[in-house]
Design a protein around this nucleic acid. Structure first.
Lengths: 226, 226
DNA sequence: TCAATGCTTCGATTAGCATCGAAGCATGAA
DNA sequence: TTCATGCTTCGATGCTAATCGAAGCATTGA
């Protein structure tokens, strides 16, 4: 009928609540099995299989067989980026699936956004780096300054190595809970991994929440409060 | 059921072909009446009314009454940006609604992308500016250099004025037909408006295509060929 | 006041799609 | 071989959502 890319197909994929739940679950960046995703979406495994087939055919997911398990993951960072864009827009327009509980609280504080830290603590990093002139934000491009380079190195992050990757070093990512920017890009990922390494934080198994230890949070605040 | 923003609602809106067509038609940035959108989507006015009501309720469209007409427009640039993201992803994955005709040809050459120029000619601008060092592209942030500032000024664009706006001056935008970047942001808009002003180009009434006059295209090529 | 236009609401129809039970098919373990 | 697990395919079902004809409202113009 019409020319151009078929956005309705992608929209349709995301438009089903079961599929949307599975996609959001995969935003953690980890690959999940079909049954884990079924559970996450609250549907039977037959139905999940049906949906996963569609999502794979649409190119949004990739699948890796391992033994009798099938692991699914987002087909690339661009899919993750699309989902974050959607979440940002949905949040801004107040389309929230309302449920506020303790877990929600933890999510608001610190959670995984594809491969970097989001939530209040993610925003804190961003604000602190900006405040001290370690990064410079020009609308939607961000640069690491020389002092920021030094700071990151001292914290144990090998920027030279990251720069060689194709991924952008710094990106800003709109946070749907805080409605402010937080740090994405390979530097964002590197910070999060360093937090794990230093045992400041760990993943919660059942959700995207990131749990900081008391000591870890203290050190985090020492480093990033403005 | 789950926490977080409701991306399924937005996905669902975009997931219906009729609605997707209407949204794409509004990517031109112009406000259109309900019947124009019905025609664009190939449905009756009753059905269009039904869909437009949903899109408005979802916050994706805004409506302005004028006499007995109702003009609809995208509720903001963020919606346009979401649609472009979707188009980029869809194109990269080969989900194209195939139809190639003369009009399609014109669209591929030059068309409106929300408020700036896309298609081959849009890509030409981007490449030329980059080649001559007028802009610098670092992954997904773009800077205008001093020489680029001078160049734009000489072409009749008041950069100082644009910089004062909240919109980013330069943004790259993935082109679904050329599959390369073209220039977005307020500078992209300014270039397009200048082309209109100089009578190098005009909008086609029925589509998003932009038609250059013979002379306009010649001057364009003189200015932007690499 | 009457007619025309643009749009919405109502009602009925239809089709497509998500869902799940049951069965089938691999893989791995005993 | 036999059993258990993880996943898919098949078939049937039920429901929702898109669609359009017809009628109803509002605005404009004569």
């Amino acid at each position: 009928m019409k020319e151009g890319p078929d956005i309705a197909l992608l929209g349709n994929m995301i438009g089903d609540p079961a599929r949307a739940n599975m996609l959001l679950a995969l935003m953690s960046g980890k690959a999940l099995t079909a049954s884990e995703l079924a559970c996450e979406a609250g549907i039977t495994s037959q139905t999940a299989s049906f949906h996963l087939g569609k999502l794979e055919a649409a190119g949004m997911l990739v699948c890796r067989k391992q033994g009798r398990h099938r692991y699914f993951a987002l087909s690339g960072p661009d899919v993750g980026h699309l989902l974050e864009t959607l979440m940002g827009l949905a949040a801004r327009q107040g389309h929230l699936r309302t449920r506020t509980g303790p877990r929600d609280e933890a999510m608001r504080k610190a959670r995984i956004c594809y491969n970097h830290l989001a939530g209040d603590m993610g925003v804190m990093i961003y604000d602190a780096l900006l405040e001290r002139g370690f990064i410079e934000d020009d609308s939607d491009r961000i640069d690491l300054t020389d002092t920021g380079y030094a700071f990151s190195g001292k914290f144990g992050i090998d920027i030279a190595h990251l720069s060689r990757q194709r991924r952008p070093l710094c990106r800003s990512c709109l946070d749907w809970s805080a409605r402010k920017s937080h740090l994405a890009g390979s530097l964002g990922t590197a910070f999060l991994e360093r937090f794990y390494e230093l045992r400041w934080a760990r993943r919660e198994k059942t959700s995207r929440a990131v749990i900081f230890s008391a000591e870890g949070e203290q050190r985090f605040r020492d480093l990033f409060s403005v």
